[in-house]
């Protein structure tokens, strides 16, 4: 059972680590990124909304949905929690496999080195995955504005319907 849990965990990390959109900048290119950050909103009502954060004010959040080509508006009161990814995570899932395989050469020591390697590499992978992320736990709605495409709010001359994706997820 333990082994199953470990490998399911490993698999989950490896799969989930590939789930962020390509338009996000690397950590070294945050300052030249022209898009809003990627937000995953868990709502009280309805399905989760994921996509580019377009704008936020005291009443609502506008998101350019990743699964469609249109913007949606979500009332702040409907937001249960959110996660915001502002840069691409560095991928460490490979270390789980490589380091684990490396312990094969450890003979009897493997029984100690294997779990240690798994603990450390899973932890590193998980940490890397969460490295460039905020959530409602450490980010206020006011500060969240800074990560929107339009931190000043959607300009009045722009119709939300005209905002389209010109990047691939």
């Amino acid at each position: 059972m333990k082994t199953k849990i470990i490998f399911i965990g490993l698999l989950a990390i490896m799969i989930s680590s590939c789930s962020y959109p390509k338009y996000l900048p690397t950590s070294s290119q945050i300052d030249v990124n022209k898009f809003g950050s990627y937000i995953d909103i868990n709502r009280h009502t309805g399905a989760d909304i994921r996509g580019e954060l377009i704008s936020i004010d005291s009443n609502q959040i506008v998101v350019l949905k990743e699964s469609a080509h249109n913007c949606v508006t979500i009332p702040i009161t409907d937001v249960k929690n959110f996660k915001l990814q502002y840069a691409k995570s560095k991928e460490y899932a490979w270390t789980n496999v490589v380091y684990t395989l490396a312990t094969i050469s450890h003979g009897g020591f493997l029984l100690l080195s294997l779990p240690v390697n798994l603990i450390v590499t899973i932890s590193v992978t998980s940490s890397g995955h969460k490295a460039f992320r905020y959530s409602d736990k450490n980010m206020t709605y006011d500060n969240l504005k800074m990560f929107a495409r339009f931190p000043q709010g959607v300009p009045p001359n722009i119709d939300l319907a005209n905002i389209v994706k010109n990047y691939k997820n």
Partner: peptide, 12 residues
């Protein structure tokens, strides 16, 4: 930003 992840991997 990756220093604190690379360091333990290097040690390991």
């Amino acid at each position: 930003p990756e220093e604190k992840r690379i360091a333990p991997l290097a040690v390991l």
